[in-house]
Design a binder for these strands. Structure first.
Length: 484
RNA sequence: GACCCCUUCGUCUAGAGGCCUAGGACACCGGAUUUUCAUUCCGGCAACACGGGUUCGAAUCCCGUAGGGGUCGCCA
C-alpha cells in the first residue's frame, strides 16, 4: 500500500515552528516512500476559526516549499459525514446518548481529580434507557470505550510500544449536543476517508491515539501507523511558545531567514543522519525515515539557525538575494531600488562579499545599504566619532588623491591610502582606511572599503568625500581647530 | 495528583555490547590572517543523570532512583 501522510493544522493562530517541523517530516516521509502528502484544515471549531490564520498557514507552507498533493480539505465541510458515522455507531450500539448537564460533569471531574484519576466520566448513561432522559436536554453522543479491565497498545514508529490500562479511557464525546462532531471523531473519519496510512504528529497527541483507535476499531477500519514526534522546547525546557521568542514561521521569514536554512535546521532538530549537517531537500528526501527520529525533546537554538542561515546565504544566488533585500531596504532604510539600476548594480557588485558575512537578510540589507545611499546621507555615531577625530590634512590628502587617481581599482585605492598612511601616520593604514570607510558608508562596519570605493566609482567616491568634508569640517569648528 | 514519554559536551546530535582514551556541528575560549566588523584557517574547553544488576566486556540490555516533559474539555 502506498504511503499517505497528512498535515492537519487548526487555524487558530499562525503556523507554529513545531507544526512546520511536523509538516516537514510528513512531507519528507511521503516523498521518501513515493507516497502522497495531503493537507487538511481542522476547522470544526467555528468560534476559533479565522480566515486570516488559514491564509497564514498556506503562505507558510508555500514559503517553505512544502507542496502538498490534491486539494487541501476543510474538515468543517465534512461535518455531515462525521455525524453520519456517529449515528451509525449509535445504531450498532457502539455509542450512546448522554444527557449529563455541565454541572454533573463538573462534579465528576472534581471527584476524579480528588481521587487522582485521569478519566472521569462514570458512564452513567451507557446502559440507561433513553426513556429516562430528562426533558428538554439535548444529549451528546459518547462512544463506548472498553469497560473491562485490560490494556490498550500502540506500536508507535518513533516511541515504540506504548501501553495504557483501559481504566484510563472513558466514554468520550464524539458528537456535541448541537449535533456537530468533535475533533476526536472528525480526525478519525477524515483520516480513514482520505486513506491516511501514517499519522506523524507531535507527541502531545499520544493520549489521543488511544481514543482514536477506539473509533477506528468500532467502525472496523484499518488503523494507520502512528509516529509521535517529541516536542520542540524553548531554552527553559518547556514546550516552545511565543514567550520563548518568535514562534511562527512568518516571523522567521521576517527576521531574514532563508526557507532552506529554516528547513535544514528543523530537519536536524530531532533527526540525524550520521555527521551530516548541511542537507539539501533532495538528500533529505533520500535519507529521511522515521527510525532515525529521536525520542527526546530538543531545545530551539537560535545561534545554530543563524549559522545555517549564514551558510545558505553564502551559497545563494546573488540575483535572488538582491530581490529578497529589496523590500527590507525599503522598510529599514526608506530606499527604493526597484527602478534604480545603478544602485542595483552596485549592490550586485558587492554581493559576494556581503553575503558571506551575513547571518540574516536583515544584516545583509543593512550592510548593503550604503551602496544605495544618495547624498546627503546620515552618519551613525561611531562614524561621526571617527570623522571628528580625523586630522584635517589626512582627509584633504585623501580627497586630493581620490580626485587625481588614475588607477581607481581596489589595488590602486589601497595603494593610494598606503601612501597617505606612510606620509602622515607612520604606515598605519587604519588611520586612513577608517575615515575613508566612515565617509563613504556613514558607518564603521563594512566589507573591504577599497573594494567598496571601486564599486562606488571614482566620481561617486569623490562626491561622498566632498560631502563628508562639507558636513564635518565646515560645520564643526572644534574639529577644524583640532585639525589645524 | 493520575497516566504516558524522555535523559550522551552549554545546545543539536553520532553511537544499535568490544571499532569509544565517546565522533561531528553550533556556541564559547585562545592564536594566525586583516583597514573595522564579519569571514577564513589552526588549536582548545566540554558529555554517556545517579545506583544496582546481566556479561569476559555496557553509553549501548534489565531494574530502581532522581530530574525533565506531555496529557487529563461538548479545544484542536
Amino acid at each position: 500500500m502506498s504511503v499517505v501522510t497528512r498535515f492537519p493544522p487548526s487555524p487558530t493562530g499562525f503556523m507554529h515552528i513545531g507544526n512546520a517541523r511536523t509538516a516537514l517530516y510528513n512531507y519528507l516521509f511521503a516523498r521518501h516512500h513515493g507516497g502522497k502528502f495531503v493537507v487538511r484544515i481542522e476547522d470544526t471549531d467555528r468560534a476559533r476559526h479565522s480566515e486570516e490564520a488559514v491564509q497564514a498557514i498556506f503562505r507558510s507552507l508555500e514559503w517553505l516549499g512544502l507542496e502538498y498533493d490534491n486539494e487541501a480539505v476543510s474538515q468543517f465541510e465534512q461535518r455531515a459525514r462525521h455525524a453520519e458515522v456517529a449515528m451509525q455507531m449509535v445504531e450498532k450500539g457502539q455509542a450512546y446518548y448522554c444527557y449529563c448537564s455541565p454541572e454533573e460533569l463538573n462534579v465528576m471531574r472534581e471527584q476524579a481529580k480528588k481521587e487522582g484519576r485521569s478519566s472521569f466520566y462514570d458512564r452513567r448513561w451507557r446502559d440507561r434507557d433513553p426513556s429516562e432522559a430528562p426533558k428538554g436536554v439535548k444529549p451528546v453522543v459518547r462512544i463506548k470505550a472498553p469497560a473491562e479491565a485490560g490494556e490498550s497498545v500502540i506500536n508507535d514508529l518513533v516511541q515504540g510500544e506504548i501501553r495504557i490500562t483501559n481504566d484510563n479511557l472513558d466514554d468520550f464525546i464524539i458528537l456535541r449536543s448541537d449535533g456537530t462532531p468533535t475533533y476526536m471523531l472528525s480526525v478519525v473519519v477524515d483520516d480513514h476517508d482520505m486513506g491516511i496510512t501514517h499519522i506523524i504528529r507531535g507527541d502531545d497527541h499520544i493520549n489521543n491515539a488511544f481514543r482514536q483507535k477506539i473509533i477506528f476499531e468500532a467502525m472496523g477500519w484499518d488503523i494507520p501507523r502512528f509516529a509521535h514526534l517529541p516536542l520542540i522546547h524553548g531554552a527553559d525546557g518547556a514546550k516552545f511558545s511565543k514567550r520563548h521568542g518568535a514562534a511562527s514561521v512568518e516571523e522567521y521569514r521576517d527576521m531574514g531567514f532563508l526557507p532552506e536554512a529554516l528547513e535544514n535546521y528543523l530537519l536536524r532538530l530531532g533527526w540525524g543522519h550520521g555527521d551530516d549537517e548541511i542537507i539539501s531537500r533532495e538528500q533529505a528526501i533520500q535519507w529521511f525515515d522515521l527510525d532515525a527520529v529521536g525520542k527526546s525533546a530538543a531545545k530551539f537554538d537560535m545561534a545554530k539557525l543563524e549559522s545555517l542561515n549564514n551558510y545558505y546565504l553564502s551559497h545563494a544566488e546573488e540575483s535572488r538575494l538582491l530581490t529578497l533585500i529589496t523590500p527590507f531596504l525599503k522598510q529599514r532604510h526608506q530606499i527604493d531600488i526597484r527602478n534604480d539600476a545603478l544602485a542595483q548594480k552596485r549592490v550586485m557588485s558587492g554581493m559576494t562579499e556581503l553575503k558571506e558575512r551575513s547571518k540574516t537578510l536583515i544584516q545583509l540589507t543593512d550592510e548593503a545599504a550604503f551602496y544605495t545611499k544618495k547624498i546627503p546621507y546620515d552618519f551613525d555615531e561611531a562614524a561621526q566619532r571617527t570623522l571628528n577625530e580625523t586630522a584635517h590634512d589626512t582627509f584633504d590628502a585623501l580627497l586630493a588623491r581620490f580626485r587625481e587617481c588614475s588607477d581607481f581599482t581596489t589595488a590602486g585605492i589601497q595603494n593610494l591610502c598606503k601612501q597617505i598612511a606612510d606620509d602622515l601616520h607612520g604606515g598605519k593604514l587604519g588611520k586612513v582606511a577608517m575615515p575613508l570607510r566612515a565617509a563613504l558608508t556613514g558607518t564603521t562596519v563594512s566589507p573591504s572599503i577599497f573594494h567598496a570605493a571601486e564599486i562606488l566609482g571614482q566620481e561617486e567616491s569623490v562626491a561622498r568625500l566632498e560631502f563628508t568634508k562639507e558636513r564635518f569640517w565646515k560645520n564643526n569648528p572644534l574639529s577644524r581647530n583640532a585639525a589645524n
